[in-house]
């Protein structure tokens, strides 16, 4: 599979994406319980990458699904996949969390959060990659999460981020290049 604006998505990934993103329909509309069960990991991964904090991502995932429950009647399958819809809610929830974090940091004057030694971004992810991900900005990490982990297509990822497809591709390329450079440095 190739990632980026002009990159083609291979057939096997397409099939995987369809199986992951598709949800059972109830009267032409997917059932929420099934959506929650199938998309939970995707939303959680996205929030882990965006926030860089598993505990926060856990809370925010729960909050995202609570919000999704409340607004479920507004979901229109013709306007986007359930995953895209949930990611947009998750992003809105995460932005509020980032604002609160910024205020907290200002209040405490010094952000004294120790960098956790535990794995944040992956289960058994190599240390250098973990560190490289930590060095990325949240905006870069979230585009990696959406395009690589959640396997959203370009237009859907751009819609979640609220930017153009070109900007989305550029951001992804830059993020992957930085990860690659970091990995090469470690190898050398």
């Amino acid at each position: 599979m190739t990632i980026g604006g002009s990159r083609a998505v291979s057939n096997d990934v397409n099939a995987a994406l369809t199986s992951v993103d598709a949800a059972p329909l109830v009267g032409g509309r997917p059932a929420f319980a099934e959506i929650a069960a199938s998309q939970l990991d995707a939303v959680y991964r996205y929030l882990v990458y965006l926030t860089g904090d598993r505990a926060a991502a856990e809370d925010l995932t729960a909050e995202t699904f609570e919000k999704a429950f409340r607004t479920w009647r507004r979901f229109d399958p013709r306007r986007g996949s359930p995953r895209t819809w949930l990611c947009r809610i998750a992003r809105s929830v995460a932005v509020d969390w980032f604002r609160a974090e910024t205020r907290r940091r200002r209040r405490e004057e010094k952000y004294a959060r120790d960098v956790p030694l535990t794995e944040e971004f992956g289960d058994g992810l190599p240390g250098p990659l973990e560190e490289a991900l930590r060095e990325l900005s949240p905006a870069e990490r979230e585009v990696v999460a959406l395009r690589v982990l959640l396997e959203l297509d370009g237009p859907s990822a751009a819609r979640v981020l609220g930017i153009s497809q070109t900007a989305c591709s550029t951001r992804l390329s830059r993020a992957l290049r930085r990860l690659e450079e970091r990995m090469n440095d470690v190898r050398e």
Binding site: A37, V148, L149
Partner: peptide
């Protein structure tokens, strides 16, 4: 890098799954 990221993607903890699935629409 992409393969590694996918292979080691985090999974939602079981307590979170229970919490989310316990929600009433």
């Amino acid at each position: 890098v992409e393969r590694l990221l996918r292979a080691h993607a985090p999974h939602a903890p079981e307590r979170l799954r229970e919490r989310v699935l316990a929600l009433e629409p």
